[in-house]
């Protein structure tokens, strides 16, 4: 399973929306429920799904799913 496929599963479960697809361009602007507090919860869910820990600045500075996928790729291959 690719990182984007895994992220799609996490996002669908978190936002309770089976039609969501995690694309590199997807950002908080595209999902009404994705506000600053939900962002934290979402990132903690991502951490659990991937078995990694994100740094605080990685969580708070994230711009879109593409950036998240890059961070996860680096962490899971290091």
């Amino acid at each position: 399973m690719t990182i984007y496929e895994q992220l799609t599963e996490v996002f669908r479960d978190f936002f309770d929306d089976e039609h969501l697809v995690a694309t590199p361009e997807l950002s908080s602007n595209d999902i009404a429920l994705w506000d600053s507090l939900n962002h934290i919860r979402l990132m903690i869910a991502v951490e659990a799904a991937f078995g990694v820990e994100l740094k605080t600045e990685e969580i708070t500075n994230l711009k879109n799913v593409g950036e998240l996928a890059n961070i996860l790729e680096n962490k899971t291959h290091s």
Binding site: S36, L37, H39, I40, R41, I44, T56, T60
Partner: peptide
Amino acid sequence: TCAVIVQEEIHFRR
């Protein structure tokens, strides 16, 4: 204030 609460949220979730 929201930025401060975000930091507390990270601590709480962890």
